[in-house]
């Protein structure tokens, strides 16, 4: 009996597997085969000897990461910014999704959604220059128009560290909130309308509906997306941290992340071993964080754990 059931299941999942095959193949070729490059993290790369022939040098390549207090700064920046993005980004995306859903009329929804999606189509290079147009010390909009009108002394934005966490988060939200809200909107549309109607009949206000129905129903989506985001918490959005601050050295204290640090060091020295080491460090810690986050979720709410 069970055997038959299994066979049936296998038969029904075969077409699905076939659909997934190109994607799996892509992942294998793009993400698994190159993992052999991990060798490089432990080697003193030599062009003549090649990847496998180069001499081993133990953990030497990792030393540079932890050599200065930069290691602390970049790890802190990477983690805190991502944490801020996960929390503020999720809240903002859900907020937008709920508002969109409540708009009701399709044409209005389409209009606002398109407008909110537009920034996502711009590359970071372009956004970097839009920000530059605002913040340029000589000719920027903020210094020349806003601050002038308020009679405040112009600020040299690209050499003042304090406002940058704020600027970066705002820029991030502007670019991503539209696209991130789509998944939540889809989940909200999937909620049975009957539940809302029943609540209305019972006299629930809009607010009560949102907090008692919409948000609890979104919980699985939020957890999965957050877990995914935590898996990448050690990666930074390179364009955001590299292009938007215009690579201003003065701002590194608040804009340097692991990715930009490695990039800076490598463009100067072109040391492939060190870049592989930093990437491995990122991956291993990122992976451990996923396991950790999932373990936490499983403890609190077994139903919603990923595995």
């Amino acid at each position: 009996m069970t055997k038959k059931k299994k066979k049936q299941q296998r038969a029904s999942s075969a077409p699905l597997l076939l659909i997934a095959a190109p994607g799996i193949l892509y992942l294998l070729i793009n993400n698994y085969v190159p993992m052999f490059g991990v060798f490089l993290a432990f080697k003193d790369f030599n062009y003549r000897k090649g990847i496998f022939g180069s001499d081993w040098n133990g953990l030497d390549n990792f030393r540079f990461l932890f050599k200065t207090h930069d290691a602390w700064v970049m790890t802190r920046n990477t983690l805190l910014y991502n944490l801020a993005f996960i929390i503020i980004g999720t809240v903002a995306a859900i907020f937008v999704a709920v508002l969109m859903y409540e708009l009701g009329q399709r044409s209005r929804v389409k209009f606002f959604q398109s407008i909110m999606l537009l920034p996502n189509l711009l590359s970071w290079v372009v956004i970097g220059f839009i920000v530059y147009a605002f913040l340029n010390a000589d000719t920027g909009f903020i210094n020349n128009t806003v601050l002038k009108a308020l009679h405040i002394e112009p600020i040299s934005w690209y050499s003042t560290t304090k406002p940058w966490p704020f600027i970066l988060i705002v820029t991030y939200l502007w670019k991503y909130v539209g696209v991130n809200s789509i998944i939540y909107m889809a989940s909200i549309s999937g909620i049975d309308k009957g539940i809302f109607e029943a609540a209305q009949l019972d006299g629930a206000t809009k607010m009560q509906q949102i907090f008692r129905i919409t948000l609890p129903m979104l919980k699985p989506t939020i957890i999965i997306l957050t877990l995914m985001a935590i898996g990448r918490i050690f990666y930074s959005d390179f364009g955001l941290f590299y292009q938007v601050p215009q690579q201003s050295g003065r701002l590194f204290e608040v804009t340097q992340t692991i990715d930009t640090y490695v990039y800076h060091g490598l463009m100067e020295l072109k040391d492939i071993g060190m870049s592989a080491a930093a990437a491995l460090y990122q991956s291993v810690v990122g992976f451990l964080l996923v396991l950790g986050a999932n373990a936490l979720v499983r403890k609190v709410d077994r139903e919603n754990a990923l595995f």
Binding site: M35, G37, L40, G231, R232, A279, Q282, S283
Partner: peptide
Amino acid sequence: VAIMAFGAFACKAAEPATTA
């Protein structure tokens, strides 16, 4: 999930390694 976590690492290492 493992793939997601390792994805970016693999991409970065891809350049030297794929055409080993």
